[in-house]
Amino acid sequence: MAKQPKSTMSRALVRRETISGYLFLLPSLIFFVGFVIIPMFTCIFYSLTDVNMNTQGMGNFIGLKNFTSLWADDTFKEALWNTFVIVIVSVPTVCAFSLWVSSAIYKLNGKLLSAFRCIFYLPVVTGSVAVTVVWKWMYDNYTGIFNYALKGLGVIDKNINWLGDPKYALGCIILILFTTSVGQPIVLYVSALGNVDQSLVEAAQVDGATNMQVFWNIKWPQMMPTTLYILVITTINSFQCFALIQLLTQGGSGTNTVMYYIYYTAFKLTEKAGHFGYANAMGVILAIFIGLLSALQFRLAKEK
């Protein structure tokens, strides 16, 4: 008997909380559902149809045909391969580099630390278009500073057409991507290093541990969640590399990526122009790869 009113009260409370909760969520949900969730599901649906630029409605259902044609599409395979190269090269280097920079700067005094942090963040803030435009000039065959400097140093003896040569183009793009990717990881690592439990560090030092030992046995495990987050965001960022490709090579010189190929298929005037269904199938594959990689990274980090 005594319990009865209490349980109705809590049910009323739950209802009240649910209503007010959703009222607070409503404005955000309108945008989230309308411009993220609905397009997300439409994307999966489109990938199973032949919808194109001129289709008014949903197009015809064609099952997995888009995916089987992708499997036979050599350009797509090349794009997928290049995307993997970018991710596999840039993710570990970004992580290692930002870890080193952070451990070198986190003990500096406040002003110097924030100056360094800002400088490494600068390429991100500058914006992909401005960054790309200036790097294009720096890589230029005749007036670029790279050819000039490397010739001056005696590294090369003839001007190199950096962005036009399939041997170098992808590497050049990865280098720019690298400079625009390390900013955020450095900020994160600096704060993670600052949050390491100092008593453990001191205890280890008393026991005679070297700096290296302290780093790998005490600081590194404590920074694992940060490392994981950095791995995931860097992976996503590398997959998303688009502006660099579009503005520098337009997918030429062996630099086509999935992201660019989606754009190209959907909007460029080619024989595949406006094949939205086909482009969406690539989007789905890309999303699956990113999901798998993120899950893998979580697993690896958990095991450690």
Binding site: F32, V36, T42, V232, A266, L286, A287, I290
Partner: peptide, 12 residues
């Protein structure tokens, strides 16, 4: 949704 690249949903 945060792990999804924005560009994937571009066409819809």
């Amino acid at each position: 949704a945060m792990a999804l690249p924005k560009q994937v949903i571009l066409i819809p």
